[in-house]
Amino acid sequence: MPFVRFMANSLPQRRKLVPIWNSNLQALALFLVVLIVFLGAWELGVQLNVFSQLVPSASRTLQAFWGWVSDPFFDYGPNDKGIGWHVLASLRRVVTGFLIGSAIAIPLGILIGLSDVISKAVDPYIQVLKPVSPLAWLPLGLGLLKDSENTALFVIAITSLWPTLINTKFGVSNVDPAVLNVARTLGASRWRTIWKVILPAAAPSIVAGLRISIGIAWLVIVAAEILVGGTGVGYFIWNEWNNLEITSILTAIIVIGLVGLLLDRLFGLLQTWVSFGQR
């Protein structure tokens, strides 16, 4: 890399410079290079009319992105709200649906993890229902609940509960037999063993499941809101598509990605917090 040579030669203390140019900085430089090349190619492609007429230029998109992000909480009526309001509406749905799903998945997972018989009996249901697409649940939800808001929650809950359920079952049924033996030799009751030994021991698995579940819930929200309407980032995207505002759609995509990243990191922190060096 000529850049490295330039820096290294221009400064007298060559040795001290090497650690600064570590792998993190290299990665950051590469990240920026990719970004610049991508934006450059995009801009150039639009200028030369390579893409469809609908495609906005990179500069226009960045301007629009900044416009949305710098003022996220305006409200000029139901069809003209800041993206912050949409994100909050979606987050509220996701968190509610996720909590409903987890409230079903964790106790059920514990039950399945503790009993071989129940595990074997319930497994076929799990295996059949788990791979069903969230979109397939939507009409059923609308038919059953006759309410778009509740349908969104239903779809989020039912598609996000599976990873938590399976991970909870795994964590509970794979507790280190050594600590279970400790509880047995102390004469601990079944209830105390579950509450004080099995659950804390399974906590890292459960939180890992929750982390995947919240990711799925956030993934599902856009599809659910596009179909159900009202507010939220999914509705926002659909609304902007009807306005043919591609810049807004691109903004929403980036914002959705960033919020998803944030949620994942949050659960990542929770995961380290319950792990105590076990991972």
Partner: peptide, 27 residues
């Protein structure tokens, strides 16, 4: 099993989420 017999395990079998103090107080 019962608490009339105290067992020391080869692999220690401590609860990883409990501190030293909590491990002993749990027992």
């Amino acid at each position: 099993p019962g608490p009339d017999r105290g067992v020391v395990f080869q692999n220690y079998a401590l609860m990883p989420w409990m501190t030293v103090f909590e491990n002993i107080r749990f027992a």
